[in-house]
Design a binder for these strands. Sequence first.
DNA 1: AGGCTCGTACGATAAGCATCGTAATACGGG
DNA 2: CCCGTATTACGATGCTTATCGTACGAGCCT
Lengths: 123, 123
Amino acid sequence: MRATVTTASSAPSSRALPHPVCEEIRLEGVLHALSDPVRLRIVRRLAAEGVELSCSHFDLPVTKSTTTHHFRVLRESGVIRQTYEGTAKMNGLRRTDLDGLFPGLLDALLAAAARQEARHGVR
Amino acid sequence: MRATVTTASSAPSSRALPHPVCEEIRLEGVLHALSDPVRLRIVRRLAAEGVELSCSHFDLPVTKSTTTHHFRVLRESGVIRQTYEGTAKMNGLRRTDLDGLFPGLLDALLAAAARQEARHGVR
DNA sequence: AGGCTCGTACGATAAGCATCGTAATACGGG
DNA sequence: CCCGTATTACGATGCTTATCGTACGAGCCT
């Protein structure tokens, strides 16, 4: 017997994705999330595009399982927001929240990443 | 008062402390180093004091062994510079180097840390 | 309905890391 | 020359994490 998912007109799907509220976002967690090259790459791409992207739009050097893991770390640390949209899962940077919590931090991090890439070239 | 300074130019002792040069400092490494609460605390203290401090001037909730470990991580990631001065080991923030590599990043990180402490500390 | 695509859950594994205690080393002073 | 202080080195341990493969569930399309 399956759980009759009550009318649920607000949420398009029954799948719940827990996100930390702003007060729960920890700087250490954000830094740890961004200290992984794969995750930093994801965040840079999200920031560059400026829109929500589905997981499959990223060309990452890891398997799908690992990709799921990295997106979850980013979501649980408060860096991105994930929402289901049909079969796709959309990912958006929590820019407003992060800027409110740590003004200027995200921009400084993105600028630093861009600078490092410019210095070392794309490898 | 400097007493019995050893031979001025070369290393004062056989103890070598390898530091990364600027080009070797990686953003991911810096973020990883600062994602540990103990290390973030060390860096904040160094930034606040603005001068070099010996390891024993820090009151950290870990043993000496662990303290040594954290200082080494900070040094190897390029965040601090360590030099021997007699029996003491002095630690200084590599502010100039970091500002040159990633302008604004260190200040943004320190501001973010201060903001988080203000939020969670004084009510 | 049946298949297709996207993403998840669940193990499993191997590496990394924060932590500690103890023994050892370097340096300065009596 | 020995002693005390400051710090490291080494070895151990338990936890976290990055990675994978495979099997499963959820929604779209014909």
